[in-house]
Simulated scan of single mutants.
Amino acid sequence: MKRKTVVTAHFIATIIVGMTIVTFFSLSLVAEIKGDIQFIKNVKTFILYALPVMVIAMPILKLTGDKLAGNSSNPIILAKKKRMKLMILNGAGLMSLAVFLYYRSHFHTIDHVFFVAQIAEFGFGLCNLTLIVLNARSGMLLSGKLKRK
Rank of each mutant, 00 (worst) to 15 (best):
N90S: 12
H108S: 04
K44V: 02
F24M: 14
T130D: 13
L146C: 14
F124P: 05
N42I: 00
A57P: 10
G123K: 12
N90P: 06
V22G: 06
N90M: 13
G65K: 07
S105P: 05
H112M: 05
I21S: 10
A79Q: 08
L97K: 02
L131H: 02
A117G: 02
T64Q: 06
D111T: 09
H10Q: 05
A92V: 15
T20A: 04
V116M: 08
A69Y: 03
T5L: 15
I110T: 00
L27S: 03
R148H: 10
T109S: 15
F39E: 04
L126S: 02
T23Y: 10
E121F: 11
K67S: 15
G91F: 03
N135P: 14
H108A: 09
A120E: 15
V113A: 13
N74E: 11
R3K: 06
K81N: 11
I37R: 00
L142K: 14
T8C: 04
A69G: 09
N128W: 11
K82L: 09
K2N: 13
K82T: 06
Q118I: 02
L78F: 00
N71G: 04
S26M: 15
D111Q: 07
L94Q: 05
F46R: 03
I77P: 07
A57V: 08
S73E: 14
K67P: 15
I21A: 13
I76Q: 12
L146D: 09
S72Y: 08
N90W: 11
S105V: 02
L29M: 12
I40L: 04
S143I: 03
M140P: 14
G18A: 03
A31E: 01
T23N: 14
A13S: 14
P75W: 09
G35R: 00
F25S: 03
M58F: 13
T130I: 08
D66N: 14
P75D: 01
S143G: 15
A9W: 01
K81P: 12
A13W: 12
G91Q: 02
M19I: 04
V17Y: 03
Y103C: 04
V43T: 02
F11K: 00
L97H: 06
A98V: 06
V17T: 11
R3W: 06
T23S: 13
G91C: 02
L146V: 11
A50T: 14
F100I: 05
I15A: 13
L68A: 01
I15L: 15
A92Q: 09
Q38F: 01
K2R: 14
V30A: 02
I40T: 10
P75N: 06
K2Q: 04
